[in-house]
Amino acid sequence: MNSVRKVRLLVGKVGLDGHDRGAKIIARALRDAGFEVVYTGLHQTPDMVVATAIQEDVDGIGLSLLSGAHNTIFPKLLRLLAEKNSADIVVFGGGIIPEEDVPGLRKAGVRMIFTPGTTTREVIDWVTANVPPRRR
């Protein structure tokens, strides 16, 4: 029996921003790299993302944000995860996020922010190194 199970990931789009090209590319690249990936579709709320993450038993959540609402949405997501005893789910993200906002997001508990120009390989390598399967 194979005791090492595949890492499960959720790629999410939250809020009104409809730019899903990047999220879909990343979801597809992670899937091709051997991860199990769920992509939520557009216009999710943080509550919906957390509910899906728990239901799908994921190890990591990657949010794509191009709306400028990252300073509101990431902290809300992290708070909801903590409330659901799921703070061990690794949260990362990407999109149009100014460099000066990155330290604040990192401090709030977002483990990594990928900005434009990141290759799919860099995301895959980071996830491989930093998102372990959760203990159950």
Binding site: R21, K24, I25, R28, A29, T119, T120, R121
Partner: peptide
Amino acid sequence: EIAEASYLYQKQVD
């Protein structure tokens, strides 16, 4: 179709 085209484009860039 759109996702496939954008993925292939990104792969070519990468």
